[in-house]
């Protein structure tokens, strides 16, 4: 896709905005619609659009497959780790009050933030993984084929 100049320029402009929006949805999920799942998908879209408009090699130079695989696992670990931490701190599994024993409501805030981060990281990882898995099998189409 060497000659799609407009597409490439607009994509470059958009990717930053998409990532910023993903982070907003991620960390503002307490106050507005959205949360880890949606943010993860939007973050994945930023990489996928880069992969579509440029090439799979380009996006895999930014985000190699092994990093993506680790991300998918790391999110679940963050989530479950939060639960295990509260278990060891003497509370029930996933009782976020453990994160701030003197101020349980703050603990809830930290807990939700951490857990949503876990969900977001996993969803980003898995979505990009699936995209890689699909497109790395595809023979590279020239523009005329579409």
């Amino acid at each position: 896709m060497r000659h799609h100049l407009i597409l490439r320029v607009i994509t470059k402009l958009l990717i930053g905005t998409i990532m910023l929006f993903a982070l907003y949805v991620q960390f503002h999920g307490d106050y507005s619609p959205g949360g880890g799942f949606q943010a993860g998908v939007i973050m994945a879209v930023a990489f996928i659009i880069y992969g579509i408009v440029f090439s799979l090699d380009d996006v895999q130079r930014v985000l190699p497959p092994w990093v993506v695989h680790k991300m998918a696992a790391a999110g679940v670990l963050i989530y479950a780790g939060t639960g295990v931490y509260s278990l060891f701190a003497g509370y029930a599994f996933l009782d976020y009050a453990a994160l701030s024993p003197h101020h349980p409501v703050h603990g809830q805030h930290y807990g939700i933030l951490l857990v949503e981060l876990g969900v977001g990281v996993t969803v980003t990882g898995v979505m990009v993984t699936i995209y890689y898995a699909f497109t790395s099998r595809t023979p590279i189409l020239d523009d005329e084929a579409w």
């Binding site: 999920g29 106050y31 507005s32 949360g35 996933l94 976020y96 809830q108 807990g111 939700i112 949503e116």
Partner: peptide, 21 residues
């Protein structure tokens, strides 16, 4: 209990933490 304005988030991440896990 949670003091998070978006109740959907509060339910998903806190009351239903196991489900979301």
């Amino acid at each position: 209990e949670i003091d998070v304005p978006n109740i959907v988030t509060a339910i998903l991440a806190s009351y239903r933490g196991f489900d979301t896990l």
